[in-house]
Amino acid sequence: MQFKDSKWDTVIEAKQNPLSLDLKQIIEYRDLVILFVRRDIATTYKQTILGPLWYLFQPVFTTVMFMIVFGHVARIGTDDIPPVLFYSIGVILWSFFSSLLMCQANVFSSNKDIFGKVYFPRLTAPISIIFSELIKFLLQFGIFVLIFIVYLFNGYAEFLSPGLLLIPFVLLWLIFMATGIGLMVSSVTTKYRDLAKALEFFISMFMYAAPVVYPLSEVSERFRIFFVLNPVTAVLECFRSLCFGTGGVSLHMVLYSIGCTLIFVLLGVFLFNKNEKVFVDVI
């Protein structure tokens, strides 16, 4: 066919490869990604008193709450990790995971006005969400790093280990997992809007099913299998064991969780690509 030859810059067809990422185009649109990130960050706290300080208050207060409720009242152990470090990293990681997942799940509905009017590589939207959530996370993570350093110089020097260098990879793993799940859900929420509400509820429940406020070692043998089957468990435990050298994470759990993550991402991108072609007609 004459469509195959190189004289066309763009060929629009009914069917396109549903796993294509079209990275070349996304790189072409990198300025758009940057501007989306700036829009998200700059406008979230416009017309508020404290502005971006809210990013810092949230984890600080939640950590204090958890220390009181789970540490002092419920007396759940923390694997001998100083409670403030244990809870703060749990809170920060979990809020990153859940808010990234929620944003990805709503990517179509929150962008429907632009998606319906102009073409640009749609994957720029989820990618920019990753970056804006990552920036929020890094601000919060800064608090943890400060506390961590204070402890390093006050009798916990053994926390300093080469394992800390692996932290970026664990973060990447968490990002992919949240994005994969989020994109999978996003293609369904365009059709059934109540799913977004349901998801919000499930995520808040789900926090108690993952080792956020307690370490895996506190879970009795009988129930442990459910926690091991939860792919988020391995990420959280891995993170803690890299920071504190504790925790009961096994290689099997890690491989299982990474496998799940790959499936989530592939399926998420597949469904996203399939959906972005037609969702304009649905929403």
């Binding site: 004289k7 763009t10 629009i12 009914a14 009017k117 073409y119």
Partner: peptide
């Protein structure tokens, strides 16, 4: 043509 929505069938070439 502006790729906001995909055609159900057929092809368009654009230079």
């Amino acid at each position: 043509i502006s790729r906001v929505t995909a055609p159900t069938k057929g092809r368009i070439g654009i230079r």
